[in-house]
Amino acid sequence: MKTGLKKIAALVGIATFGMMAMSGSAWAQALEKQKVSIAVGGKNLFYYLPLTIAEQQGYFKDEGLQVEISDFAGGAKALQALVGGSADVVSGAYEHTINMQSKGQMITAFVLQGRAPQIVFGVSTKTMPNFKSIADLKGKKIGVTAPGSSTNIVANFVLAKGGLKPSDVSFIGVGTAAGALSAMRSGQIDAISNLDPVVTMLEEKKDIKVIADTRTLKDTNDLFGGPMPAATLYTTEAFLKKNPNTSQALTNAMVRALKWLQTAGPSDIIKVVPESYQLGDRALYLATFTKVREALSPDGRFPEAGPQTALKTLQAFEPDLAGKPIDLSKTFTNELVKNANAKFK
């Protein structure tokens, strides 16, 4: 009898130890894929601030995920990583989901980070001091984060509204940090399409004259004629189907970050964001955060009219896209975000 009791006690002890070991990683046990690689083009940008918050605050770890983030010069490069198989997910612009569908590849955005693109198009005060209209940019060099990225797309749209085609100018990849500042200030480029904190730093020194601004909801609506989805987490349709729990865990972490950002003050941001992202000017970085805060999504949901606005924008300068049937319902989903908002109220 004593031996039997000892055996039972031992089994109970083993079970208890097993439960204790599992308690901190219940989600991890349910995940189809614990290690997830995320590609991003310009991690230091406010455009991707929710991703940085989710990473720095440990929200991915809380969901049982081991996330590895690879930073590229621009969104087009991050997309290439997904298509090439070196990344599972991309933190990137929504428009890529439409462009990829037109090429026969189904990509789905599953959480919205930004409800305004935050992209600013500015003309050099050094090389073009007498700028009058978009027509003056014909034959000029325009700096974008990387050719094919969302900054390139917004630049194309601004040019189209002014009567120019993408082929009327030369696009040069300048990145999202010091390289972009240098390219503009040294006269290597005549105009720039970029984001904060880079843009505000150029404005402060009067290096650029702003032509188009999408940092507020009003300015975004005025330029595009409706709400324009910006930064998202997107992945292949196949990944979402194969890894529903992993995708939900990623969404939970991002929605939690978005909600944290709704109440965070400048001092909170400074404690979390790596110093290198501030490009040597902490005060300006904080002032810029206040300026772009409205552009961040409060809950990760895609606005109903947003996808249609994005499609119209792309069709304005991509004639090939105008003739192709695009199923916008397959370019995004609000299902995972709905679940995450129920968890983090």
Rank of each mutant, 00 (worst) to 15 (best):
W260F: 14
T232H: 01
M254L: 14
D222Y: 10
L279D: 09
V273W: 04
N252H: 12
T236V: 12
G265W: 01
D219Y: 07
A264W: 02
T214Y: 02
L250F: 01
T263V: 15
I211V: 06
V272L: 06
T288H: 02
Q262M: 11
A212T: 13
D281C: 07
A264V: 09
A231N: 13
Q262F: 11
P227T: 11
N243T: 02
A249L: 00
R256W: 03
L286V: 15
P266S: 12
E237Q: 13
T288N: 00
A283W: 11
A230C: 02
L250V: 04
Q248A: 05
K218C: 04
T216P: 06
W260K: 04
R282A: 14
G225E: 06
D268H: 03
I270P: 04
P274V: 11
Q248L: 03
L258S: 08
D219Q: 08
A287N: 13
T246N: 03
F224E: 10
T251I: 01
T263F: 05
S247T: 13
R215C: 12
M228N: 12
L217M: 13
L223Q: 06
S247V: 02
L217G: 03
V272E: 03
E275H: 08
I269Y: 04
A283T: 15
Q248K: 05
Y234G: 14
L233Q: 04
P266G: 12
A230I: 12
Y285R: 05
S276F: 04
R215D: 15
T236E: 07
K271Q: 12
K242N: 06
Q278S: 10
E275A: 12
L279Y: 02
D222A: 13
P229T: 06
T263P: 05
P227M: 11
K209I: 14
K242M: 06
P274K: 00
G280R: 00
W260V: 04
P227A: 10
A231W: 06
L286A: 14
A212R: 05
Q248Y: 06
R282I: 15
A287Q: 09
L279V: 04
V210I: 14
D213G: 06
F289S: 00
A249V: 08
K259R: 04
T290G: 08
K241C: 04
A287D: 14
A231R: 07
T235G: 02
T232W: 00
G265E: 14
R293A: 14
A264S: 10
T220G: 05
L240F: 03
I269G: 00
T214V: 08
A283G: 14
R215S: 11
V272R: 00
